[in-house]
Nucleic acid binder design. Structure first.
Lengths: 278, 278
DNA sequence: TTGCTCCTCACGTCACGTGAGGTGGC
DNA sequence: TTGCTCCTCACGTCACGTGAGGTGGC
């Protein structure tokens, strides 16, 4: 019979651990003195202790190990649990690898640009949304602002007539990924709470869910180019691949009621493929 | 100005998180109503929130991120921290990989042997120890028991005469890794608290520290072969490589005072190379 | 009598999730 | 008046580490 100190030495675990295992019923001393509370162990319990430590090393929780002991489980169950654990650990590794890739990308970014990033880009999932949109080809960049206002006015007027309730947010979609100055294919829209009947100019549909890279721009409306540059440079550095159109989300409210174009908050989203990492 | 619910929606974080960040001083609402306690945020704070989330994703703790913000650190510091983090994450991955290898080895073991392991083998480090030993060639296996007793007697007698205090444990070293029946090179020893003067038969030295695979055998002295088989089969399965002699540690006390050879507790140790995993 | 070993609380860890119980504004 | 949003505690998480404060045996 060994006192807790001796057992802990031979077993290479702390006394506190043994007390803890006693407390949770994982490894009870073979005998406990009723007066002093002293715990007594036997050398036979070493085997049990080692089994516990082995399972712990494999990544099982003490609660699970306790169950294992109580149920003295079958070979098949154990094998299944191990396979399950294997998958878990593989996923864990995968997660860490992605984290590592992000760290490396940020390091590359620092080395390349010589400064801390001005924009934080991150990956997120956007759910489906019911939307009403109006899509037109805008002849030149110069007239863009007025043109867009007209389009939004038309859209809102129509929705009001049809008594279709708006929800958030308002947005714009750039169907060209590159920067162009003429004949810009522009789609403006707003989320709504139920679909209406489409016409020649106004469309109703479900804007599909996307897995996208997103960036928020706070500042002048005329500097949104910076955000877009940051967005695409980030996508590049992180070896993602962009697909589809750019969505511009008007977090500041409606473009029609924009009081100060020097202080707006927009979010840009562009769908990406993320099967790039290992 | 946004209420916490709106801000949490746009920022894609839970309200509880925002409250928590407020509490620890990481992201304070720009204004708090003194009467109602309502928190108010601005869209500008979205940028800050995203920076926080980005750093969190890289693996930094909220405490660290808070420091980053207060010190508004230099580019170099940030780069150093990122490099450091990179190493950390790599080590983390390494740890998980080893865990994965252990899980796989255990699965192979189950597939191969069709049963749960009877012995738990694990890797541990054993520190240096001062020892006194007696080493002789034992002619045959048959006379082994008496031969060993004689050797221990000689050893203990000598130590007693020299007044060298014993410490734990007693042990034996098998210098042959294979099983042989004749002319067995056998070294028996015990840990001591200070070195004495060696003679022709008795040696004093520091038994070197080793990184070893270890297994504990509880049961009959005549079945220690099972433990050794398990030990080497484990080493094999886990793709380690054994080096050096086998150490047999007498956890049950002294061989001279062994009352019941059917119930002994021994530990076997054999040094291994562990550079095998990636 | 003095160390040594053992004991039982009980707090702290990290980043929130999850109620409990209660209050202002449409 | 009824929902809705917001609020402040405060417990729970996981496996112990780390004191605090106190007790038997050589």
């Amino acid at each position: 019979m060994l006192k807790i100190g001796e057992f802990s030495q031979i077993g290479q675990v702390s006394i506190r651990m043994l007390r803890h295992y006693d407390e949770i019923g994982l490894l009870k001393p073979i005998q406990t003195d009723h007066f002093t509370g002293y715990r007594y162990y036997t050398l036979e319990q070493l085997t049990q202790l080692h089994r516990i430590l082995a399972l712990k090393d494999l990544g099982f929780s003490l609660e699970q190990i306790t169950e294992f002991q109580n149920q003295n489980l079958s070979l098949d169950t154990m094998r299944d649990l191990l396979y399950q654990k294997q998958v878990e650990v593989e996923q864990q590794i995968q997660t860490e690898r992605i984290r590592l890739a992000r760290i490396e990308a940020r390091l590359r970014q620092i080395e390349k640009e010589g400064q801390l990033p001005n924009y934080e880009v991150f990956i997120k999932s956007v759910p489906v949304q019911q939307v009403a949109t109006i899509r037109q080809t805008v002849p030149t960049v110069d007239g863009m602002k007025d043109y867009r206002c007209e389009m939004y006015k038309t859209l809102y007027q129509f929705l009001q007539n049809q008594r279709i309730p708006l929800s958030e947010p308002e947005f714009a979609i750039y169907h060209h990924l590159e920067y162009i100055e003429e004949n810009i294919d522009m789609e403006l829209g707003v989320a709504i709470s139920r679909l209406g009947t489409p016409t020649e100019t106004i469309g109703f549909y479900e804007l599909p869910a996307i897995h996208c890279a997103s960036v928020v721009h706070v500042g002048s409306f005329w500097e949104i180019g910076l955000a877009l540059t940051a967005l695409f440079s980030w996508i590049n550095l992180h070896k993602y691949q962009s697909i589809g159109a750019i969505r511009e989300i008007h977090l500041f409210g409606s473009e029609l009621k924009m009081h100060d174009p020097l202080n707006v908050t927009l979010e840009f989203q562009v769908a990406v493929l993320d099967s790039h990492i290992m």
